[in-house]
Design a protein around this nucleic acid. Structure first.
Lengths: 245, 245
DNA sequence: CGACGTGTTGATCTCTCTCAATTAGAGTGG
DNA sequence: CCACTCTAATTGAGAGAGATCAACACGTCG
């Protein structure tokens, strides 16, 4: 099987990657070590692993997570095509979180010091990396708000909306016929700080109310408005929270 | 009152800021617009505010937060001297979170496009910014693990340890005589996804057990080991979580 | 066909929330 | 100097969302 060059990278058409010159692509190309193909439910980075390289997720789904010593697991965020992996760990330091695939997936593997190389040789790519990192943080921020302050129903509504949006953005039809949804209920539970059983019950309740449907590994949105209302999701013109002065 | 130049910035002695040349400092200096002094409990950035500039926290404490429309608030993380503020918001975009001071505080205000300027003119500073951003994300990751999977006791133990470490690192005595602790119990509750009442009860329980003491706005650690055990905090030689399988 | 993973549902149990009331200190004004 | 007010901390009591325990259904797979 052939190696994909950055020039023909499937991610290029995405808005985020449009702006770079051919030279910059060559630069990225030069840091790329190889491609890595993994199956579903394989571990890409172990928690506490040192010297993990830098990755980019080319296709498939994965997630970052942390666990406590008795096995309780928290999924920090889900990774879709185009996401960066491994910027968090200071070089030479232990990874503070693990990464596991959800589906079969392809990763681009970069040298550990590609991060510095890119910054040095192309400030605009460096800037982009900062931005991507900051953006990922804002996803975690959103989840933290959910887990800390939303009820189970609200959390699930939120998760469905956000994952749907992200997945839909990667397909041509914009999600009109649903999007792939490879999470088990255990993953949802671990992503939202809920128990498996309660996740199931809540999910069924929303589904019975006709808000969404999950079947055969696909997610269909039935009533996005109702879900958004449930999640207290502003945006799309709704007013931001009123300052409580 | 005189304006502090970057050359004489109180943050320079911190490990993170040691490595930069005089020229780089001048560069930062050139992006600095002014200093901003605020009192305790003032809002630096409103949730949803557009075009907020970039800040650095020179002294004092602050926090980032998000709220739901009915007023439920989640504190995303606490900010101490040396922290960056505002990298998250895409330029020209609305701030996804608010920032409020906890104590009197001094901020350095930078031009909105200082971020790009720094990347362009000094890759090594750019790299540092990426790293700082990634590091802040890892703080949020930690909190998410707590809020999603730890019990109230465990969460509070964790918060006390982490805040103590950060605050202690900023003082000469390393926290031997306690550290300033300007949070009210409401702040702790909002940072950990707990109710005020339960936070109070849990805090008192730990205090009565002799694990810590908070008085007169200072935090004293009485039994860090016990707190660390409670929080299931590894590090300092304890083994990382065993891979399950 | 039995074993296993995932989803589903009912029945408790409990941790944490909500409601309510009290205390203590700091600040204000007469 | 003494009410009066406000905020933060504290404690008790009852309620509830979500956890835990237990079974069972269904499809896949060796």
């Amino acid at each position: 099987m052939s190696v994909i060059t950055c020039r023909e990278c499937p991610l290029r058409p995405l808005p985020l990657f449009l702006t770079h010159s051919t030279e910059e692509l060559e630069l990225v190309q030069s840091s790329k070590q190889r491609e890595l193909r993994m199956q579903a439910e394989e571990i890409l980075i172990h928690e506490g692993q040192t010297d993990a390289p830098l990755y980019t997720l080319l296709s498939g789904w994965a997630f970052r997570f942390k666990t406590l010593s008795d096995g309780r697991r928290q999924i920090l965020n889900f990774l879709l095509a185009g996401d960066f992996i491994g910027v968090q760990q200071k070089m030479g330091d232990a990874a503070a979180h693990g990464v596991t695939t959800l589906t079969d997936a392809v990763f681009c593997v970069f040298k550990r010091d590609a991060l510095w190389d890119l910054h040095r040789k192309s400030p605009s790519m460096g800037f982009n990396i900062t931005w991507l990192t900051a953006h990922e943080e804002s996803l975690v921020d959103d989840t933290l708000l959910s887990v800390g302050r939303r009820s189970a129903e609200e959390r699930i509504a939120m998760l469905l909306i956000l994952l749907f949006k992200r997945a839909a953005a990667l397909q041509a039809d914009g999600g009109a016929n649903g999007v792939p949804f490879p999470l088990t209920q255990q993953h949802i539970a671990d992503g939202l700080g809920l128990s498996l059983v309660h996740t199931n019950k809540t999910l069924r309740k929303l589904e019975r109310r006709g808000l969404h449907r999950i079947s055969d590994g696909r997610l269909y949105m039935r009533d996005v408005k109702a879900l958004a209302r449930l999640a207290d999701l502003y945006g799309d013109g709704r007013p931001p929270p009123r300052p409580l002065v």
